[in-house]
Amino acid sequence: MNNKMLKNYAINLAVVILIFTGLMGMMATGMLNKYHQGIIIFILINVILASSLNLVTGFLGQLTLGHAGFMAVGAYASALFSVALKGQMPNLLLLIISLIIGGIAASIVGIVIGIPALRLRGDYLAIITLGFGEVIRVVINNIKITGGAQGLTGIPRIASFQSAFWIAALVILVLYRLTHSKQGRAILSIREDEVAAEAVGVRTTYYKVLGFAIAAGFAGVGGGLYAHYIAFLDPNTFGFMRSVEILVIVVLGGMGSLTGTIVAATVLTILPEALRGFSDFRMLLYSFMLIVMMLFRPQGLFGTGEFSWQTLYDRTKLVHSALRKREKRGGIDGSTGSK
């Protein structure tokens, strides 16, 4: 690990801790009430769901429309586990084990679906994953163990802001490291040109299924968090529209940009809440803004790049030195270049 990387890690860790303590402080002093806290937890859940989808859609380049299905599998698997074992172990331990179970269950389903589905490309993959997602929903709706259409109740409400925050941070860290490794490069090469990737020896099927399984697993973790925060599961919340909402976050943030996903998840979770004042017009405005954002930034907020403090620092330095140079010359149009 060289110095620059160490510095970057240190800065990022400091920022994450700062955000965490900042939010904790605001919650303790009542600046953020229960309602705000709920929104923040939803942002964190959306960060997990969207960043995992970004691995498949942004980094691997495979469009899928069934991510809510994996979320549902994770939600139900983890909830069923914690319902059975609640009270028998400390809450935090129960939460962690439930989430791991949810993640593994979703991952297995991801592999089972991924192997046949990932042979398809482009829109066909999108459609088949949509189909699988809906099948998962209908199955959950109609079997006994999940509580069927009545929903699943009695889930312990053990997810909190703290656990959601650190799990989201962990997911981002894992995804960042994965995408910046030989596996990550193989995944990116498939997005860039699958035929060429195979021609330089990349096992394309293996990496596609790997990416898909990891993404499904994290979606399952996100679903598990959701289940243990809401404490009630209704199968119809995991429909096609939920998958679409997650995809919207990914595209708006920028395909292949984890930082973009975090920003977009925040914006798109807060937006409908912030528009509550418009009552009936709320969702109308939301969809209108979505269209406008796509029209003006079709490549997403961050494109495929990652935000980093180093680049920001470099860039501001660059801008400053450019401004200074301009000042020295007295500016092109005679202005001082300050404004």
């Binding site: 859609t57 469009l63 679409v244 995809l247 919207v248 595209v251 708006l252 395909m255 969702m283 109308l284 939301y286 969809s287 209108f288 979505l290 269209i291 796509m294 029209l295 079709p298 490549q299 997403g300």
Partner: peptide, 19 residues
């Protein structure tokens, strides 16, 4: 633009008309 952006816009239009 990338095809996926148009797809998202189409979804946006769908939401818009519904609402």
């Amino acid at each position: 633009a990338p095809r996926i952006s148009v797809l998202i816009t189409a979804i946006g239009v769908s939401f818009f008309l519904q609402n």
